[in-house]
């Protein structure tokens, strides 16, 4: 090292070993709540990725599924979420193509392939991983009622169908993400 500038850290040679602080008090009690409101394949992932990352950092994480997001925890639909060109100009394809039969299937399989190549699990497996990491899944009461769904229709690891006010109460002091 030929750096002549004084480096504050270069002289750290304390008697107590310098060890990463994994469990700092400032981070204790940190809580994250993610509201998953979308039912398309592309928009299912942001919540899953961030929730999983938060759990890996030791943050208490709650995922609340509402509206279209219900498809992510509905046993019938969780494996068949789709991506579509329609209404999504960020796919950079002419919107007219999106209406052609088969295009949604094509967009979906392309996206699934790209996700699998990065070794990112499919939605049901990803939720399994989140629960195994200590994450909590909750379903929205109004969405359940609107779609005539009960707990029996949802993944077994959904901890409950709760109202919006239950959710607000439960996530007091949490950081909130709406997706």
């Amino acid at each position: 090292m030929t750096d002549t500038k004084p480096d504050i850290q270069s002289d750290i040679q304390t008697e107590t070993p310098f060890v990463p602080s994994f469990d700092t008090p400032a981070e204790e009690g940190r809580k994250l709540a993610i509201i998953c409101s979308k039912g398309t394949l592309d928009m299912a992932y942001p919540g899953l990725i961030l929730g999983n990352a938060a759990l890996g950092e030791g943050v208490e994480t709650h995922l609340f599924f509402t509206f279209w997001g219900f498809d992510m925890i509905n046993k019938k639909t969780q494996s068949s979420l789709k991506a579509t060109l329609l209404g999504n100009t960020a796919m950079h394809m002419p919107q007219g193509l999106g209406g052609i039969p088969g295009m949604t299937h094509l967009a979906t399989s392309q996206l699934k392939k790209a996700i699998a190549e990065l070794d990112i699990p499919e939605v049901p497996d990803f939720l399994d991983q989140i629960v195994a990491s200590g994450g909590h899944l909750w379903a929205c009461r109004l969405s359940a009622d609107m779609n005539h769904l009960t707990e029996a229709d949802l993944r077994d690891d959904v901890e409950g169908i709760i109202s919006a006010s239950d959710f607000i109460e439960m996530t007091a002091g949490a950081q909130l993400l709406f997706i």
Partner: peptide
């Protein structure tokens, strides 16, 4: 680069 002594070794 900081260094520290762990298990009797400077690393």
């Amino acid at each position: 680069m900081p260094s520290t002594t762990i298990a009797g070794r400077q690393i």
